[in-house]
Design a protein around this nucleic acid. Structure first.
Lengths: 352, 352
DNA sequence: CTGAAAGCGCTTACAG
DNA sequence: CTGAAAGCGCTTACAG
């Protein structure tokens, strides 16, 4: 396993493996004519230093442009005051607010945030998570790409506070913060049913992804409660790239058995379905999982099952710092409610 | 200045200031019955270890669940293989792709990314940047919130490779990667002029923000080239919150001297203006700076001057690693072109 | 092929 | 109030 240190470190120029000749506390001590510990006291604002001594030390600090090396401090103190966040893709609009929320909580606890994207690749998730552990982050927030997290067991045992978000951990018992994908999807589909639809399609992400499977389950539950037998051609699961989703949508909308409504499993699916429906004159109803910017500006506005990404991040980060601050806690599963937002597309009546 | 270490570190439980009793190379060495240096060789894949010795060390590593403490390694090597990114707000859709691009370049160079949001607060920008320097990041990518970066001069001199993005550094000479805000805005306004508009409004961000000032300058240049004298009531600069922008737009659209077209200074302004124009029946033309998702799905589609956020991030990060890898480079200003994307809203003819 | 000693820049524990 | 010594967990430089 590569920790990522080598590439940069090994191409470094010979001379500056001393942080570019930065002054150290020793240099400050020499210049101020005091002991090392006295400098440490001043730098850290500890009591027990004469005003005069403090002034002399401060002058030396200013003259040398000294800045404490937290990297060394960390080694001695045993806590790095940093946490890691492994997510799928920082460029995805769902993860931006989530990441920002984690950052805010970290900041409130005096910690910095190191984050990385797994690109939905379990191998990369593991590589990243373990690299962060090698850096000795105090805690880890993980949005799983893979479904087996036993590789983190030794780390968690060794004290790395770990919380999973958006999807549960695989094969280990750990904290997890989720949206209620099942309930949200069931409510969204029930909404379509309430508006008279019977032939309702479901287009979702790959079923190996937990949220996708849960949303499918919600769809099935709502349909079953309404006494409707789902036809295979109404369901399409797979990658969420525009090409596949478009084909899936067009197939559902064609022929005599065409669906009159579609439930879209996540924001990326929704966006593509909106494009397809626009070409079909919007006579098909649509409810999507995940809210997105401008959903209200489209015509019709897009009815969605909204989840609160920031709240997911905040909850996870707070759980993490509870662990870090306090007594050991039993792993817990926290589920956040979703919210149906009606804007028009979900209230289109069945065609024909 | 607070480095953020204290809060977490000081609330730590007494016992585990040794990283939760993790095994060290010393423990591995003892168990394998070899010297410390031999363990180091095996862990780092260095040559000169018998197959048999290596096997024994590896067994000890596995048995103890040893993972090298990169935090200690870093202290000795002098390079942390991490870079910092200070941006405005990770939740802003403009910065997600930028951040992701920086991360990818960092990853290719074996470095991790620590990022933080300044929330457009110069004080917070400085606090964050200096905290990152205290952690001894190898380099810093900064999207400036403030306009005075002299506080970074000692850090840069000490060897922290620093590149500014999106807005130039203030009062220091440093690398900067920008979009061509002036040219982009001029082109966008020229596009409206070419479609017959004379009374064109400009709604932008606060003029103290460099990009806002440059875009205003581009607007003025295009109008001047067309021989049009700009009236004061056509320009509105200030915060980009929906409330202010809405009022500004409504004022410009009211009365006998109403504008027939609006140039919006950034994505947040554009979105609000779209809402206002929707209420006005879309008889006013609009060109916005920054592209955004679904701009093509609105009716009419929104014509924009697009900048490539990912390319900004990639360029900046590559510049940073060039500095880190090689000889000293003179500070450089890199300007990336923008691209006009016509979708309908910018081609609406003048009303009346 | 292998390892003991010194040191990275701090903090801790202790003594004056 | 002040500081010398030891140590955090590694790597470097060197010797066998």
């Amino acid at each position: 396993m590569t920790t990522g240190l080598d590439t940069v470190a090994e191409t470094t120029r010979k001379a500056d493996n001393r942080y570019g000749n930065r002054p150290t506390m020793k240099d400050v001590a020499a210049r101020a004519g005091v002991g090392l510990k006295t400098v440490s006291r001043v730098v850290n604002g500890e009591p027990g230093v004469t005003a005069d001594t403090e002034r002399r030390v401060q002058e030396a600090i200013d003259a040398l442009n000294f800045r404490r090396n937290d990297s060394a401090r960390v080694l001695r103190k045993g806590r790095t005051a940093s946490i890691g966040l492994v997510l799928e893709d920082l460029a995805d609009p769902f993860y931006g607010p989530l990441s920002r929320a984690v950052e805010e909580v970290a900041r409130a606890h005096g910690a910095l945030l190191i984050n990385g994207s797994s690109a939905e690749d379990p191998g990369r998730e593991q590589e990243l998570a373990l690299a962060l552990c090698a850096r000795r982050v105090d805690g880890l927030v993980v949005i799983p790409a893979g479904d087996d997290h036993r590789y983190l067991e030794p780390e968690i045992k060794a004290g790395v506070a770990t919380v999973f978000v958006d999807r549960p951990a695989g094969r280990i018992n750990a904290d997890v913060v989720l949206s209620d994908s099942f309930g949200g999807a069931r409510d969204g589909v029930a909404h379509l049913l309430a508006h008279g639809h019977r032939r309702i399609g479901f287009i979702g992400d790959q079923p190996r992804i937990h949220t996708a499977a849960e949303r499918l389950r919600g769809y099935r539950a709502a349909m079953e409660e309404a006494g409707i037998t789902i036809e295979d051609s109404w369901m399409s699961l797979g990658a969420t790239d525009p090409h596949r989703v478009r084909r899936a949508a067009e197939e559902m909308l064609a022929g005599p058995d065409a669906v009159t409504a579609v439930f879209a499993g996540n924001n990326r699916v929704t966006v593509t379905v909106v494009r397809v429906l626009a070409e079909h004159g919007h006579r098909v109803a649509l409810v999507g999982f995940d809210d997105f910017e401008l959903a209200d500006l489209l015509r019709p506005g897009v009815t969605v099952v909204a989840q609160d990404a920031a709240q997911l991040g905040r909850t996870a980060a707070e759980r993490l710092f509870s662990r870090l601050d306090g007594a050991p806690l039993a792993p817990q599963r926290i589920e956040l409610p979703t919210r149906l937002i009606t804007r028009g597309s979900g209230e289109v009546p069945p065609a024909g």
